[in-house]
């Protein structure tokens, strides 16, 4: 497979389709990197019948490989820092991160604790912040909707540049 590039026109159409699909079914993965559980139960409550985030196509996923959006709660502890990075790296591009709760945004009450490395955006880039201790499920939905709107309004997200390695894989195929 030597000629992989599409014409510009077709490429644009493809990107639009991808964006449409992405906005209509964002799959989430949730990681607690040192939270007190308050935010986690509210995230779970967001998915249950009263708030029903599934009407936005939102689905909580178990595997980082299937997820588009990483929802992080809590400050980052020394031990979970590597895990958080690993989960982030395992997610396919393009990926988005939502930091939920005061601790995820600033460290909250746990600022200065010896086992806390810092807040989420000191470890991985964050696209949306949901403040609150813990934020209400409505706030979490709002955060998600804001993220999705931003994706919709923004330029189509380019797929990652084809690296040497992927080219080799295609060539071998």
């Amino acid at each position: 497979m030597t000629n992989f590039s599409l014409t510009n026109e077709w490429n644009n159409v493809l990107l639009k389709v991808k964006k449409w699909a992405r906005i209509n079914s964002p799959w989430l993965i949730h990681y607690n990197s040192g939270s007190c559980n308050g935010c986690d139960i509210e995230i779970l409550a967001t998915l249950t019948p009263r708030y029903d985030a599934e009407r936005f196509g939102v689905k909580l996923q178990g595997s980082p490989r299937h997820a588009d959006v990483l929802i992080c709660t809590g400050p980052v502890t020394r031990q979970s820092r590597d895990r958080l990075l690993r989960i982030y790296e395992q997610m396919p591009d393009p990926k988005f991160v939502v930091a939920v709760g005061s601790c995820a945004i600033s460290g909250g009450v746990f600022q200065g604790c010896y086992n806390v490395v810092g807040h989420i955006d000191e470890v991985i880039p964050v696209d949306a912040y949901v403040p609150g201790c813990p934020p209400r499920p409505e706030a979490i939905i709002d955060g998600l909707v804001k993220l999705l709107t931003a994706i919709q309004k923004g330029a189509p997200v380019e797929p990652p540049a084809i690296t040497q390695l992927t080219e080799e894989i295609y060539d071998a195929a």
């Binding site: 607690n32 559980n37 400050p75 200065g112 086992n115």
Partner: peptide, 30 residues
């Protein structure tokens, strides 16, 4: 264990009695 170990017992020693009330409340959200 220890993924969510934040060092609250030590942190409590550096905060005053009232501040600690809000710290211990965040040991567990449930």
């Amino acid at each position: 264990l220890g993924y969510v170990h934040r060092g609250i017992e030590k942190a409590a020693e550096a905060r005053n009695w009232t501040q600690n009330l809000y710290l211990v409340e965040r040991i567990c959200g449930i």
